[in-house]
Design a protein around this nucleic acid. Structure first.
Lengths: 204, 204
DNA sequence: ATTTTTGCTAACCATTTGGTTAAACTATAC
DNA sequence: GTATAGTTTAACCAAATGGTTAGCAAAAAT
């Protein structure tokens, strides 16, 4: 029998495309490699997605839709800023450990195609800083936290959590750390990062 | 006259190659575009550098040799940790503002070709954390700073300084910041970041 | 002055690449 | 059972791409 369809062809394509695009980027990816990885004929890629560009956008949107809810846990959750930082740091590091190519892929392609942002910005659930800003200012007024601009704090939280995954080859080299030790270093950051931030912004 | 040589051809090529490679990456760059930008024939690229790969490596090493001394100011300078953080933060942000594509380029290509690290690691002046580690531990013992692992502090310093340049398209979108305001945000970080770090690690 | 070397260009080449097409195969509708 | 619509493949195509070559022109060496 030919139509085994152990799996939907479309999703086999998406999975293969994700793997190739995320490791090689839009320009480095080859349609043939995606087809091979999916175990199908190259023409199928055009049959299901109209071409490289659209297939890529499908993969990108998919990747971003994974990242978005993660960001929204700092921005829109109901708990206190301190709790949100602790939670986000812990969760995000676990999340990326499961999707190691994701941050690199997103930032790379976003820098290469700035117009992508406007395409996804319209989609529902796109993160916004507004609520976080209000909440932060209230906690500052109450004297819980020391004064800091919401944008700066937000950048700092993202930076401390995301950067180690983007810069890992360089950091490993500079700190003379092998893969195993680096994994441990990252694991330690689940608490390291949140105490580092809280230390800095909590009123004593 | 033909041999005007208003400028060394080799350096014209390097400059053009740098501009194209840093904005489009190894895979996205086109030899013809580099030649056009340098105002020379494509064959010259092969005459001076043996091909795309070697031309790329020349550009990459060049870029890294700019970044290296910057990192060494935190790692090897003689002043106190606190002063080094203040200096580095201030200097690095000015530095990148002049070379906005540099961090993205380096991390992108380092992730794509992990073997690059071993190539440049041998070159003199490659940053190492050893001295910084010893100095930090001394200051911790003296009670100037609270306990923190050198690797973690180093990652945090880099993260807070470099990340805003890598993630700018996303951060601009989430925080609803236009280019001008973002520039201001970055400018503010020259002191914002160092106080944020010092706040967190200084013994009170 | 003339030979040799170096710098440079136009034209060309082989391969790769995204994309297309016509035909075959499969499942479903009638 | 046969027509119909959806799915898949092999073969093909045009454009792009990194690289090469043969020859010219300008310096440098003799």
């Amino acid at each position: 029998m030919k139509k085994a369809k152990d799996k939907n062809t479309e999703s086999k394509i998406l999975e293969a495309a994700k793997s190739v695009f995320q490791t090689k980027g839009m320009d480095g990816a080859r349609m043939q490699e995606i087809a091979d990885k999916a175990g199908i004929n190259k023409a199928m890629l055009h049959y299901y997605f109209r071409g490289k560009q659209l297939l890529f956008e499908a993969v990108f949107k998919n990747a971003f839709s994974l990242l978005s809810p993660q960001l929204n846990t700092i921005l829109n959750d109901e708990s206190s800023i301190e709790d949100k930082i602790k939670n986000f740091t812990n969760n995000y590091i676990s999340f990326i450990t499961k999707h190691p190519y994701l941050p690199n892929f997103i930032f790379q392609e976003l820098n290469r195609n700035p117009e992508f942002i406007s395409k996804i910005q319209k989609s529902i659930g796109f993160p916004s800083i507004e609520k976080f800003k209000k909440q932060l200012n209230i906690e500052i007024e109450k004297g819980i936290l020391i004064p800091i601009k919401a944008e700066q704090l937000f950048i700092n939280i993202l930076a401390l959590n995301i950067f180690p995954f983007i810069a890992s080859p360089l950091i490993k080299a500079i700190t003379n750390t092998d893969n195993n030790s680096y994994e441990q270093l990252i694991e330690d950051r689940k608490i390291e990062v949140s105490t580092f931030i809280i230390n800095s912004i909590k009123q004593k």
